[in-house]
Amino acid sequence: MMTDKEIIALYFKRSENAIEQTDVKYGKLCHSISINILNDTRDSEECVNDTYLTLWNKIPPKEPNPFKAYICRIIKNLSLKKYEFNHAKKRNSAYETSLDELAECVSDGTEASDSVEFEELRTAINTFLSELPEKKRILFLRRYWFLQPVKGIAKDYGITEKTASMRLARLREKLQQYLQEKELI
């Protein structure tokens, strides 16, 4: 398997092999992120293909570092846009559920833009995550960044769904306390 630098070099050479190598290395991850948001195979496939097109159009001149995070951000943003388009008046995905869970601890009931500046909140959450033990940080990110269902996370951790839900609830409580201490909510 090629390294990220080697794949990026292929984009700079305008080699179509860049997309193939990106798919080999990150295709499953992209599909996973997208399907967890959209719950639709066709829409997910479309978002993955749009991700590859976006990479093709942005590299060069960009030289993303880290490449994996750059790809994840693109697929997540494209999937969220597709989700919003498809569900303007509907509500029924893991995406909605995970955001509802998280909203309880980062909001005081007013709009985020009214209660705190977005950058302050982002910085505080990043700091909170960096202070967590690795396993807890990964658990949190899998649920609230990669939007993975609790059932799948529980299976991977070898625990029950109830245990996974409780751990996530405790992490949300800790985040809420942290943000209250920082006077951000």
Rank of each mutant, 00 (worst) to 15 (best):
L139M: 10
R143A: 13
Q148I: 13
L171P: 05
K135P: 03
I159D: 04
L171E: 03
L141K: 11
Y178L: 00
F146W: 09
K155T: 09
G158Y: 05
G152S: 14
R137W: 02
L168E: 05
W145S: 09
G152T: 13
F140C: 00
G158T: 04
A169F: 04
L141G: 15
R142F: 04
L132G: 02
D156I: 05
I153L: 11
W145V: 11
R142A: 13
A164N: 08
I153K: 07
R142L: 12
R142N: 14
I159G: 11
L139H: 08
E134M: 09
R170F: 13
P133I: 04
G158W: 01
F146I: 13
R172H: 04
T163K: 12
R167D: 07
Y144W: 03
W145F: 07
Y144A: 13
K136S: 15
K174G: 10
Q148M: 10
L168R: 03
G152E: 15
P133Q: 07
E181L: 06
W145N: 07
T160Q: 10
E134I: 06
Y178T: 06
E134P: 01
G158A: 12
A169V: 00
G152R: 09
L171G: 01
A169Y: 15
E181Q: 07
R170I: 06
Q176H: 08
E173R: 05
K162Q: 10
L147N: 03
K174R: 02
T163Y: 11
W145G: 02
Y157F: 12
R142D: 14
Q180K: 10
S165I: 03
Y144N: 06
S165Q: 14
V150E: 12
I153E: 02
R167V: 00
G158F: 02
T160K: 08
E181P: 00
A164Y: 11
L139K: 09
I138D: 15
R170H: 15
K162A: 12
S165W: 02
K135D: 15
R143T: 01
K174F: 00
R143H: 08
L168W: 01
K174Q: 10
A154L: 11
I159W: 12
K155V: 10
R167W: 07
K136P: 00
K155D: 12
Y178M: 02
L168Q: 09
A169E: 07
R142M: 14
V150F: 09
Q180V: 06
I153A: 04
R167A: 00
I138R: 06
Q180E: 14
L168P: 02
K136V: 01
F140S: 07
T160D: 08
A154E: 01
Y178P: 00
Q148S: 15
Y144L: 08
M166P: 00
L147M: 14
T160E: 06
K151R: 14
A169D: 10
L175C: 03
Q177A: 08
G158D: 09
D156F: 05
L132S: 05
Y157Q: 15
L171R: 11
K151P: 13
T163A: 14
Q176T: 04
Y157L: 12
I159Y: 10
K155E: 14
K135S: 15
E181M: 08
Y157N: 12
